[in-house]
């Protein structure tokens, strides 16, 4: 059985600058809207707790946008994502312990 000749490896074509910019630009626009919403809500006459919760939610959205799109976690394998998650997991444990104390106080 004769083997088919190996195709010569083609170097990938460089993408256009517009295609490189498109995705980060959209995410940046969303994050700037989230920032504007965060500042706007801070002036609304709503309870402090609701305002703080919204502010932290928008911060979480911003962190996720930066980590997943800008830092390209969406294109990485499971191992890299696990490494990336460790810091946030320890942070979550730390705050769980803090709030379990305050939540348990009479």
């Amino acid at each position: 059985m004769s083997r088919a000749p190996r195709a010569r490896r083609q170097a990938p074509q460089a993408p256009s600058i517009r295609s490189i910019i498109r995705r980060p630009a959209w995410v940046l626009a969303i994050l700037l809207v989230a920032l504007a919403a965060n500042i706007g809500v801070s002036f609304l006459p709503i309870p402090h707790f609701a305002r703080t919760a919204f502010n932290l939610l928008m911060a979480a959205v911003t962190v996720a946008g930066i980590a997943v799109i800008f830092m390209e976690l969406d294109r990485k394998g499971v191992t890299i994502r696990l490494f990336a998650a460790t810091g946030f997991v320890w942070l979550a444990i730390l705050f769980l312990l803090i709030f379990s104390d305050y939540g348990a106080r009479p």
């Binding site: 490189i20 910019i21 980060p24 630009a25 995410v27 940046l28 994050l31 700037l32 920032l35 911003t62 930066i66 799109i69 800008f70 830092m71 390209e72």
Partner: peptide
């Protein structure tokens, strides 16, 4: 935020 988007274009 803008600087992060700009630096994200580098890699």
């Amino acid at each position: 935020l803008v600087s992060s988007a700009v630096i994200a274009l580098v890699p």
